[in-house]
Simulated assay, not measured.
Amino acid sequence: MNEQNGTPQLAAPDNHFDIRLSPTTRGARLARLLAVEWLRPRRDIPYAVTEAATQIVAELTANAATHGRVAGRDFRLALVAHPGVLRIEVSDTRGDDLPEPHTGRGLLLVEALADRWGVAPGPVPRKTVWAELDHSAGG
């Protein structure tokens, strides 16, 4: 437990970032900025991977704010750093609207930058679009 400003808080795991944001262009922009701030101090993830991750976050959160938007329901951004792999997940509440591979400039960019990506349906009404970037720690 950490104490900040006299308020006890549970320490967040260093390898995981998770936030819910409004499905708006402002929410998508904030997601990208927060991802940059979470990735910036990480010495175990190479700079090229953080740059690719930033672009992927921008594309997936823009899609969530545009195509996955449902009034009153947030989208979720999660970043998880495993040894040798950075995983990006963006979940929205339009599980009925699955992205199709090879469509749209944004998904083509995600496909080009990520080592793997896909869509996981559920739980209803959600879907999660995920991407993984391989790297060697610190290199």
Rank of each mutant, 00 (worst) to 15 (best):
D134V: 01
V90R: 07
V49N: 01
W38F: 14
A78V: 13
L107Q: 07
L98T: 10
D44L: 10
V90W: 06
L34H: 09
P123E: 04
A81P: 00
H82L: 12
G84V: 14
R29L: 09
L113S: 01
A35S: 13
D18P: 01
W117P: 02
A78G: 07
I56M: 01
L34G: 00
G122A: 07
D92Y: 15
L30I: 11
D134S: 10
Q55D: 04
P125K: 13
D44Q: 15
Q55H: 08
T128V: 15
D97H: 14
Q9M: 11
R94E: 05
I19C: 05
R126A: 09
L34K: 14
G118N: 08
P23Y: 08
Q55T: 03
A65H: 13
V70E: 13
D14I: 09
R20H: 08
T7D: 00
L34N: 07
E89W: 09
G139M: 13
D96Y: 12
A78Q: 14
H135K: 05
P46N: 10
L77A: 09
N2G: 08
V129Y: 05
F75S: 06
D97M: 08
E132H: 06
T128Y: 06
D18M: 04
A65N: 09
R105C: 01
T24F: 03
L60A: 06
P83W: 12
T93E: 13
A35Y: 04
P8E: 04
P125Y: 12
G6F: 13
A71M: 06
V119G: 06
V110M: 04
E100K: 15
T54M: 00
L30R: 15
G138S: 12
P123M: 05
V57R: 01
A71W: 08
L60V: 08
V36E: 04
W38G: 02
W38C: 00
L21I: 10
Y47F: 11
T54N: 01
A28G: 10
T25C: 02
R20N: 07
T61K: 03
A52G: 03
T61W: 03
A53F: 00
A52S: 14
A78E: 13
R32N: 00
N15P: 01
D92W: 14
T103K: 15
T24R: 11
H102F: 13
L113H: 04
A78F: 01
A81Y: 00
A12W: 12
G68M: 11
L34A: 07
A52H: 05
V85P: 02
L30N: 04
L109M: 14
S91V: 02
L34P: 03
A28V: 08
I56T: 03
G27Y: 12
L109N: 11
V90A: 03
V110P: 02
T61I: 07
V80A: 05
G95T: 14
Y47K: 01
V70G: 04
V119H: 09
T61D: 01
V129I: 13
A65R: 15
D44H: 13
Y47M: 04
R20I: 00
G68L: 13
R116I: 02
G139C: 02
H102W: 12
H16C: 02
E37D: 11
L33V: 02
L10H: 07
P99D: 06
L107C: 05
R26E: 08
R43W: 09
Y47C: 00
L10D: 01
L109E: 07
A65Q: 13
L21N: 07
R87Y: 00
